[in-house]
Write a protein that binds this DNA or RNA. Structure first.
Lengths: 188, 188
DNA sequence: CTAAAATGAGATAAAATAGTCTCATATTAG
DNA sequence: CTAATATGAGACTATTTTATCTCATTTTAG
């Protein structure tokens, strides 16, 4: 919660990031594996996070705050919706693992607050999409809810493809937006 | 491996399906949870699958065979590519959990054969997409590899949205194909 | 440089999970 | 109906994982 020193705080975040990175691709990873992946001893891991559950919850909040912050930076209420979406993609891709982790791990049973928080953090995106539909840049015959799913999972696709080495990180945002906005069919 | 009787075989498949269903949304589920979810005793679970690893591997093969069979039924080499893609979506959505499980669980380290098999099963889809690009119905400026990612993850999006209750199962294939082929932007 | 604090490696205890076994009940085959 | 087989509940053991603790070494603060 509160930090004793900036150094410890930095270390905390490093551990959280490393843990997210691993857990996003291997949800069954043990604490020993997490510690190794973060290049620290398991004792130290326990010093920062007393239990596995505590780690997971802080992980979720870390992801939540980071993603929330990124979204706010994007100024989604400015420019036509497709342009704002491109900005969002650009900014969010580097944090794909956290976004993925946040939406796929189910802690709503262990911590109901988080479920609510997840929706809150998505709210600006939903607003953006509805704005796009209102201004006529996004299709109205597809529900905003489903568009959010498409956006999220296109992002996961990009992140996974980067992980697999199938696409370059710097190409990801463009590929995402091209495919999402324009579709894969040839226009006639 | 081989079946003693048709009845036991049926039971086997039921267990595998139930396990997939659970593990797709909760990869950390214990064997006891899996047994409960399949509505059998844990002893019986062990009678059919001696170890957790054995269960996982058979799960993968089950998913592989089923999906492979579905893909073959779709006759992806017929009709224009978009039409064939729609057929594929229609046929694959009901097995979304297996498809998801197959592509997300990483058993390539425990069983390298499966990694190869995964690519083999995707081959007809890749061929379809390349055919579409050749015949001019699918965009050539997006790589076939990336299109496969988009297809897969759009499918996962549909499956997740169904699971969340955000969309109706019978609408899923149409939503998938609309979004994937046409994109979410308004054409001008 | 020195003292205080933090860390890692590993021993150890506690808890959870995997896997085995028994036996009474249920199901199936014939 | 009867015998053989399969099942579930739960006791039980083995193994893995989580969590605690110690202590020599490293890092940090001053």
């Amino acid at each position: 919660m509160d930090s004793d020193s900036p150094l410890k705080d930095e270390r905390r975040l490093h551990i959280l990031d490393a843990a997210t990175e691993l857990l996003a691709t291997k949800p069954t990873a043990s604490l020993a594996e997490i510690a190794t992946h973060a290049r620290i001893g398991k004792a130290t891991l326990h010093r920062y996070f007393p239990t596995r559950e505590a780690l997971l919850i802080e992980l979720a909040y870390r992801a939540l705050n980071l993603v929330s912050e990124v979204i706010q930076t994007c100024r989604l209420d400015q420019d036509p919706a497709p342009v704002a979406l491109a900005r969002l993609a650009e900014a969010l891709v580097p944090h794909g693992d956290k976004w993925y982790f946040l939406l796929n791990e189910h802690f709503w049973d262990v911590n109901p607050d988080l479920a609510q928080a997840e929706e809150t953090v998505q709210a600006p995106i939903l607003a953006l999409i509805e704005r796009g539909q209102a201004e006529g840049t996004l299709r109205r015959d597809i529900s905003a809810t489903w568009i959010i799913y498409l956006l999220d999972f296109t992002m996961f696709a990009a992140w996974q493809a980067i992980f697999d080495g199938s696409i370059a990180r710097r190409d990801a945002p463009r590929l995402m937006i091209e495919g999402l906005l324009g579709g894969i069919a040839v226009k006639r």
